[in-house]
Amino acid sequence: MAVLLPASFAAWLIMQAAGGGSGEGKAAPTLLPPPGSSEEDSQASDGRPSGDGGEATRPPGPERKPLAGRTVVIDPGHNPRNRDHAAEINRTVGIGTSRKACDTTGTATESGYAEAEFTLDLARRVRNGLERQGATVKLTHDGGRAWGPCVDARAKAGNEAGADAAVSLHADGAPARERGFHVILPESVDEGAADTRAIAGPSRVLGRELVAAFRESTDERPARYIGDGKGLDTRGDLGGLNLSRVPKVFLECGNMRNAEDAKRLTDSEWRDRAARGVAEGVAEFLEGRPKS
């Protein structure tokens, strides 16, 4: 201490002579490191790593956007307000091979949690995940419609967007003893306005990627009560698939009538994992295909 006092006093005199004593309008210079500091702290604060003269830390590069330039259409199945518009949703529309109702109300859990509420919530989460990867994401509806859209309009949305992939989100209303998720693929059809010959193959690839990613993210098992028992089912009677001209599948995320599945479907944290699985499955599919 006896050695430091004269040096500190001399430094103080220099400061006073320079007009820095009052501190008004500018900060006084630091003469010594603040208590508890070290040379290592000083190096870290100015962007250089501690240690023996390492290189300055480079700022992080631009975030990778693997899906930049890709368009994905997400179709939240049904509509929470369909139940109030029976006349509108019961009118029939062409699905290529036949005619079917414009839309339905969907199913619900025993506690009353509607499939339409689930699919809309999940669609928004999926959109967020895909947009973070750079994709342009369009929903067939985002809760602002009074009812619908009809199944033919849902297919048209993907076609008009020139989507690289489209996924329709649903939850099943199977017998309560059954559980599990599955993906519905378009059958190869060529009848009337329905022509899925060009998309049946790519849609199957999309479906397989979704099954793998959804299972890994949610730890859910594929349904054994429908399809091939490995999570895939093929149908030619769904307008949303029959009228699509872009690779498209339906994802039935679980059985709302089963108590175990319902517990998951109604859980917000589980829906986060489900959305991650959908986004990852779509991303895997798109990264394996050339851009159109």
Rank of each mutant, 00 (worst) to 15 (best):
A68E: 11
K230G: 15
T30A: 14
T140N: 04
A198R: 10
M15G: 11
D219W: 13
A279P: 06
T196W: 06
R127I: 05
H85M: 04
D261V: 09
A262N: 12
V126C: 10
A56H: 02
P186Y: 01
A174T: 13
H141A: 04
V167F: 02
C150G: 01
V151T: 15
G19F: 06
V249Y: 03
R179K: 15
A18Q: 15
A259I: 12
S111D: 15
A135C: 02
G281L: 03
A27P: 11
N128E: 15
E88F: 00
N90G: 00
A166I: 00
E287G: 14
I89P: 08
G47D: 08
G162M: 00
A174E: 15
A223N: 15
G281F: 06
G106L: 08
T234C: 11
G173E: 13
Q16C: 10
T136I: 02
K100Y: 01
F9H: 14
F250S: 02
A153D: 10
V72M: 03
W147K: 01
L210I: 02
E280P: 00
A108D: 09
A171H: 10
G227T: 08
A155Y: 01
G192K: 11
D267E: 12
P202I: 01
A174G: 11
L31R: 09
H170L: 08
A27F: 11
K65R: 13
E24L: 15
A212S: 11
I226M: 06
N82D: 09
L238Y: 07
I184N: 01
G134D: 10
I14W: 12
L210V: 03
E209H: 07
F181R: 14
K156T: 01
R48M: 06
L67R: 05
G94S: 11
A10F: 12
V167W: 00
Y225D: 14
G254N: 04
E55I: 02
L5E: 14
A213P: 09
R125Q: 14
F9V: 15
D75I: 00
D75Q: 00
S203G: 06
E115N: 09
E88C: 00
N79L: 06
E284I: 05
R48W: 12
G277V: 01
S188Q: 14
P80K: 07
E131F: 08
S188E: 14
K263M: 10
L139N: 03
K156H: 01
T104V: 07
I184R: 04
A155H: 00
R132H: 08
D152I: 00
N82Q: 06
R64F: 08
P149Y: 02
P175H: 11
I226N: 00
K65Y: 05
A87Q: 15
R99W: 04
S37G: 12
S50E: 14
R58W: 12
L286T: 05
S111W: 10
A153T: 05
A193F: 09
V189K: 02
G240C: 10
D52P: 04
G180T: 13
A116E: 05
G231H: 12
P186L: 04
R124E: 13
D41M: 05
L185S: 06
A101S: 13
N242E: 10
R245S: 12
A18I: 03
A161M: 04
A274S: 14
D164P: 03
A123R: 01
A10K: 11
G240M: 11
A11D: 09
R154N: 08
L185I: 09
V151S: 13
S98C: 08
P202A: 04
